[in-house]
Amino acid sequence: MSRVRCCRGRPRAWFVLRPDQAAQWGLIEAAAEAARARGVAETFLWALPQVMRDGFVHFDTMGDEAVDAFDDVLFPLELGREAEVAPGFSTAILTSAGGREARNAGWAEARTSYDVGPGLRSEADIGVLLAFFRARMGAARGFRLRDPFDFAAAGEVVGVGDGVARRFALVKCYGAAERRITRPVAGSVVVAVDGIATSAFSVEAGGWVVLDVAPAAGAVVTAGFTFDVPVRFAEDRLSVARATFLAGVAASVPLIEVREG
């Protein structure tokens, strides 16, 4: 994390230099809010390429009543293998007259879309879905979804000890790509330090493991867990017809992953 120093009451700015430091945006956001509360005239989170790269979003809610737009409940229907899963990226591609390409990845992580409509198996399922949709106020409130194709991790390296740090973010790696896990299933997290399992830890909201004792410098901290994906309904309108359902036509119920952390 880098910052631009300033005098008291003057503008202050922070930014994240590298993609592997994306988790620091949350700390930067908290620091910026604290600076504003102390009377700093302006705070800046920059620059745009880093913000776009890491998918960071900030909503200015100072002066507004805090609202938790996420219900920590699991989607109530079993998806099965019929569900459609579509991870996506945002890549800008510039093609020259000679056919050469320049590509710029706008997101450091994939954002997954789902269609859970094909998993509806009965009229009772439709009733459960409609009630759940109303309770979430359409797209307004997020919830947990168990991805039938990707819901567990084992032996993931979540950090390396320095003798001081005790708090490590849960992640899952796909080759060189790293995915932040913010909704682990309660009771599923296991932790090891240099390959030795330990129970001396707690799990904080947002997918953070906090060890009772800081690991020694160079000690590798690994974790295994089951996790859910934070999602919301992609639309504020849900259309499910009994006639088409009885005719064997699958309804479309699109969901979209919610970025957290």
Rank of each mutant, 00 (worst) to 15 (best):
F70V: 02
F149Y: 15
M137Q: 14
C173W: 13
R183V: 10
L94A: 14
A105W: 08
R146M: 10
P148M: 05
G175N: 05
D147K: 04
V171T: 14
F133Q: 09
V191R: 08
L170G: 01
A69G: 02
A69Y: 11
T95H: 02
R81M: 10
G88V: 01
A152H: 13
P76W: 08
V164I: 14
A139G: 06
A110N: 07
D71M: 13
V158I: 15
D72Q: 10
V73H: 06
P184D: 00
I126K: 09
G155F: 06
A135I: 03
R167Q: 13
A110P: 02
A186Q: 14
R141L: 14
A177Y: 07
G195H: 07
G138N: 02
A169N: 13
V164M: 12
A139E: 10
R141F: 15
G163T: 05
D162P: 09
R100D: 15
G99N: 09
E78K: 14
D115A: 09
R111E: 03
V67S: 04
L129R: 05
R141G: 04
T91Y: 01
K172G: 10
A135L: 11
D162V: 03
G142P: 03
V67E: 13
G138I: 08
E178S: 11
A169W: 07
R100H: 15
S90F: 03
A69N: 10
P148V: 01
E156A: 11
E123L: 15
A197G: 00
D125N: 09
F201V: 02
A169D: 09
A108E: 10
G187P: 00
G117H: 01
G99Q: 08
R121E: 12
I93P: 00
T182V: 12
V67W: 00
A186G: 13
A69Q: 07
S96T: 12
R81Q: 11
A154D: 12
Y114V: 00
A154W: 04
K172W: 01
D150W: 14
V128K: 05
F132P: 05
G155L: 05
C173Y: 11
G155Q: 05
D71K: 15
L145Q: 04
F133S: 09
A69V: 14
D72S: 08
N104L: 15
G142E: 03
L170N: 05
V85S: 03
F132I: 08
A177H: 11
R179V: 10
F201W: 07
F132G: 10
F151I: 02
L120F: 11
L94I: 12
A105Q: 08
S188Y: 05
G195F: 06
A105L: 08
D162H: 07
A97N: 10
A69M: 12
V128P: 01
Y114T: 00
G106S: 03
I126A: 07
V160L: 11
T182S: 14
G119V: 01
G159P: 09
G175Y: 07
R183K: 10
G88F: 01
D72P: 09
V171C: 09
G195I: 03
I196S: 12
F143C: 07
G63D: 03
R146I: 07
G159V: 00
E101Q: 10
E84L: 13
D64W: 14
N104P: 00
